[in-house]
């Protein structure tokens, strides 16, 4: 008798987990797993009476999944943490265009797809942070300048497997050509304080530990370190200042977290509504304050930390290019020997 009970329980457990999505729900595949996203989704559910199902995984896995699931995919929307993956999803013909006058009027052209297949939801800059003690900010100018011999054994950066580094490289290829980007990568590796490893936070902590003097990191990690519950992390955050490079020329490299509507979704209107919700002023400010990302809606204000760093000139390269050049960027890293 016991074994039948167990089998019954297994079946119930399985069915429990298979309640399929219905009409008044949206299924979102997302690479972002921030707590603030969950809060925002919950608010949307409450305000609109629409159920939101979330699948978290890396963008590559999700894209593969949507591709295999084909016309029977449960996914309505895909959120990634960089523009490159959005472009890849578009190239694989996974997105559909959507129209929204709200998006047209508030989002700058370089932060969305030329055919309206995806749009950014938050923005981050890849900046140089420097030790307050050991570096005079007047020495810093641009990404290109980091190959100068004065930075020998002083630069900290994570490995090239990271998408933010790949995007930065794409922007350098786009600005200076592959040959120059290649030389840049080769020369900068000579200036590394140590082998690339760890994550962005570890680079800042290494500045505190005097392993190096400057690091290439994303802005929101600094915001998080400064507001961490961990005393050591706060100290690491306070040991550095942010420098926005390339202010004299094309501007600081930025990337986005973005969203697109899946081609086989039958809920375009609902999905568009959801995207507009994410881009509304209040939600944008919620993203900004909780996660120290720059809002994409220019009406929304940034978190106070970000305000302190001041405005900066952004690289206006259409982010589409980042995706198109991503593979080339990775190959440049490999050839240059940046592990």
């Amino acid at each position: 008798m016991n074994k039948y009970l167990v089998i019954l329980l297994m079946v119930i457990f399985y069915l429990q987990c298979t309640n399929s999505p219905n009409d008044s729900s949206l299924t979102i595949y997302t690479h972002r797993h921030y707590d603030v996203d969950k809060e925002i989704f919950a608010n949307f559910e409450k305000e609109m009476g629409i159920k939101i199902n979330v699948v978290n995984a890396s963008a590559d896995e999700l894209i593969q999944r949507i591709e295999s699931e084909g016309d029977q995919t449960p996914a309505d929307l895909l959120i990634t943490v960089d523009a490159g993956r959005l472009v890849r999803a578009k190239e694989k013909n996974l997105f559909q265009s959507f129209n929204s006058s709200m998006i047209d009027s508030t989002i700058p052209a370089n932060l969305k797809d030329s055919e309206n297949q995806w749009v950014g939801i938050t923005k981050r800059a890849r900046v140089i942070v420097y030790s307050k003690e050991r570096v005079d900010p007047s020495e810093l100018t641009s990404y290109e300048d980091l190959t100068d011999s004065k930075w020998k054994n002083r630069i900290l950066v994570r490995s090239s497997g990271n998408i933010y580094n790949q995007s930065l490289m794409s922007s350098l290829i786009s600005a200076n050509g592959e040959e120059n980007a290649m030389n840049w990568a080769k020369e900068i590796t000579n200036n590394f304080a140590r082998e690339p490893k760890g994550n962005d936070r570890d680079q800042v902590k290494a500045i505190l530990a005097k392993e190096g003097d400057i690091a290439i990191v994303n802005t929101y990690y600094i915001g998080r370190l400064l507001n961490s519950d961990d005393e050591l992390e706060r100290r690491a955050g306070n040991a550095v200042n942010v420098f926005f490079p390339n202010q004299a020329d094309r501007g600081t490299h930025i990337n986005i977290s973005g969203i697109g509507i899946i081609k086989n979704s039958k809920k375009v209107e609902l999905a568009t509504l959801f995207i507009e919700y994410l881009l509304s002023k209040d939600v944008q400010e919620q993203f900004a304050t909780a996660n120290y990302e720059y809002p994409i809606n220019s009406n929304a204000s940034s978190a106070s930390v970000l305000e302190e760093w001041g405005d900066f000139k952004e690289d206006t390269l259409p982010l589409q290019r980042l995706g198109e050049l991503n593979k080339e960027a990775v190959m440049v890293f490999d050839r240059a020997g940046w592990p």
Partner: peptide, 18 residues
């Protein structure tokens, strides 16, 4: 499966535990 039997089983495979 869809092609042969004209059955859409994606729902059970993709949003289930199977």
């Amino acid at each position: 499966f869809d092609y042969i039997f004209n059955l859409k089983i994606g729902k059970y495979i993709f949003s289930g535990l199977a």
